[in-house]
C-alpha cells in the first residue's frame, strides 16, 4: 500500500545542500555591531589615574589591550552594580579573550571615592577589574573629552548628595582611540559579541 518515492533521497540531498548554502550565506553577512561605532575613531588624550596601593593606571600603557571604561560612584547601589555585573558576565563569556580586555571603572564622585574605595568596589565583581580615582581636575578633563556628564544632586537621602552621571560604556583600543560606545542597559551577549568581533578585526590588521 505504501508507495515508495524513489526520488526521496534526491529531495533530501537537495534540501541539505540548500540549507548549508543558506547557513553559509547567513554567516558571510558583515557583522553588525550592537554598540554605537565611532567613525572615524576619536583619539583620546592619554591620562593617568590612581588605583589601590598608590599604583597608577596610564591609558597608553595597557599592553595592547582594549580598555572597557565605565563611569560610576561607589555610593550608587543600583545602576553601578548593574553595569559591573554585566562586566563580570562579559568577562566570563569572553573566555580567553577576556585577557585582551581591561575592565575599568572611573569614579564620578572623587570627593567621596578614594582610589582604594573604587578599586575595592570594582574588585568585588572580579579581582581583575580596575577602579580609578584622581583629582577633580584630572577627572574633569577625561569626562569632558568623552562627553561624560557628571552632576552632584542634593537630596534628602541619608546618603547625602547623589551623583547623576552618564552610564554608557566606552571602548578604547590600544592606540588610545575611542572605537565604540555601549548605551546603558546593553546586554552581556551583545557586549561580548562586539568585543570578540573588535578583537578579531584587530588581529587581522
Amino acid at each position: 500500500m505504501i508507495k515508495k518515492n524513489i526520488y526521496a533521497p534526491l529531495y533530501i540531498a537537495t534540501a541539505v545542500i540548500a540549507l548549508s548554502l543558506l547557513i553559509g550565506f547567513a554567516f558571510r553577512r558583515p557583522y553588525t555591531f550592537h554598540g554605537t561605532v565611532i567613525e572615524p575613531p576619536l583619539p583620546v588624550t592619554d591620562f593617568s589615574l590612581q588605583t589601590a596601593n598608590g599604583e597608577s593606571f596610564r591609558l597608553s600603557d595597557q599592553d595592547g589591550k582594549i580598555v572597557l571604561l565605565f563611569f560610576g560612584y561607589t555610593s550608587c547601589p543600583d545602576v553601578c552594580p548593574i553595569t559591573l555585573g554585566t562586566f563580570k558576565q562579559v568577562y566570563e563569556r569572553l573566555g580567553d579573550d577576556a585577557q585582551k580586555v581591561r575592565f575599568v571603572m572611573i569614579t564620578a564622585d572623587p570627593d567621596r571615592d578614594t582610589p582604594e574605595k573604587v578599586a575595592a568596589y570594582a574588585a568585588q565583581f572580579n579581582p581583575e577589574f580596575i577602579g580609578l580615582s584622581g583629582s577633580l581636575a584630572e577627572l574633569k578633563a577625561i569626562w569632558k573629552e568623552l562627553g561624560v556628564f557628571v552632576e552632584k544632586q542634593n537630596s534628602d537621602s541619608a546618603a547625602g548628595y547623589l551623583v547623576s552621571h552618564t552610564a554608557s560604556v566606552y571602548v578604547i583600543d590600544q592606540n588610545g582611540d575611542l572605537l565604540m560606545m555601549f548605551p546603558y542597559g546593553t546586554g552581556t551577549i551583545d557586549m561580548a559579541d562586539d568585543l570578540t568581533q573588535l578583537l578579531k578585526q584587530m588581529e587581522k590588521r
Binding site: 545602576v79 556628564f149 537630596s155 547623589l162 547623576s164 552618564t166 552610564a167 542597559g185
Partner: peptide
Amino acid sequence: VDGNGVMSMQM
C-alpha cells in the same frame, strides 16, 4: 536614564 544616557536617582 534620560535621552542622553545620563543616569540619576530620585528619592
